[in-house]
């Protein structure tokens, strides 16, 4: 067991980690840093549940070794959640019943926080295209699409104000 000490920047905080170089980012976030909002659904990069932001861009935490992430900025669902209440995207998902079991939800939040920043006025087709990288077995997706559309509207108003 060849454990190595290194530093990760997660949700704008420097975190000291001692882990094997082969340890996945998803496991380090969940086990070493206790950030359990990042979920693991397949460990082969298909389901999207483990999606986090690396330097602001969505990435599968199950396909990255944590040690590779030194000098990068990692953001998880916990880092996208305000201290009180919900973000506009989270609030829209709540109002539109855009989650059922909730297991895939953090991956959808991280993906679309990044997407809506770059694409403030997406069409439904664009939303569905991006959402196709996150598997949901419960909802049938319609309410998620509706919620993202609503969040985009609210976020546009927020920026304009």
């Amino acid at each position: 067991m060849n454990r190595i000490a290194f530093t990760l920047t997660v949700n704008a905080m420097a975190c000291e980690v001692v882990a094997e170089p082969r340890k996945l980012l998803s496991d380090v976030l969940r086990e070493d840093l206790r950030l359990t909002g990042t979920h693991v659904g397949c460990e082969h990069g298909v389901c999207g549940a483990c999606t986090v932001l690396v330097d602001g861009a969505p990435a599968r935490a199950c396909l990255i070794f944590a040690i590779q992430m030194q000098c990068r900025e990692i953001t998880t669902v916990e880092g996208l959640t305000p201290a009180e209440g919900l973000s506009p995207l989270q609030q829209a998902l709540h109002e539109e019943h855009g989650l059922q079991c909730g297991y895939c939800t953090p991956g959808i939040i991280t993906t679309f926080e990044a997407f809506l920043r770059e694409n403030p006025k997406p069409t439904d087709d664009e939303i569905r295209e991006v959402l196709s990288g996150n598997l949901c077995r419960c909802t049938g997706y319609a309410n998620i699409v509706r919620a993202i559309r609503k969040a985009a509207q609210i976020m546009r108003k927020g920026t304009a104000a």
Binding site: G37, T81, Q90, L93, H94, T105
Partner: peptide
Amino acid sequence: DARLLRGKG
């Protein structure tokens, strides 16, 4: 939803 959306489930 409150816990699940915040990653606190």
